[in-house]
Amino acid sequence: MNLTERTQKFFTGNLTLEDALPTQMPAYVNSFVYLFGVSALSALGLLVLTGFIMALFGPNWYHLTRVGRFFNSLHFWSVQFFFFALVSHLVTKYLTASWRDGRWKTWMLGLLAFGAAVLTGLTGFLSQSNWDSQWIAVQAKDAMNSLGVGALFNAMNYTQVLTLHIFFLPVILSAVVLIHLYFIRSEGSVKPIRRGE
């Protein structure tokens, strides 16, 4: 068994360079609703970039210095644009029934990405180390405890919350998004709904 040969065959069958980086698109891919996905991806890129810089300099920097506060604001507004694009993407994909022609895996991975994004957002709010974090921590703990999750995740344990937010959850989210993108590029955009279908 030649592993390299098998890998080549896999990509020839599922994801060529033209699939991954297409230079042509079906004529029906012609609406701004197709931009919500790439908008969410762009905002996610900005979140990683600004988050990387914030993690590098630490909480005192983004609370107490002008430049740090500005990066905190960049991160905050990136979150808002990210969720706006993500929710718009989700809604338009539902309204165009985009799971057709065997694309249910892409849909489900998108939903998992949304779930991971919500958890990353929650830990982000908890990581702010300001009043919002303080209030959300004591409120969120009731929701977590009632579902039995409180034994594994303590919203008031700042160290756990911060490490989850800046490493564990972003890695999970990025991995799910990458697999989601693989299926999108491999399977291509779903065809329009046929009249009377």
Binding site: T12, G13, T16, E18, Q24, P26, Y28, E187, G188
Partner: peptide
């Protein structure tokens, strides 16, 4: 294009992208 994409988009007009 992969075999899968070619089969799916067969007969669909394409535009530059």
């Amino acid at each position: 294009m992969s075999r899968r994409s070619e089969a799916y988009f067969h007969g669909i007009p394409m535009r530059p992208y």
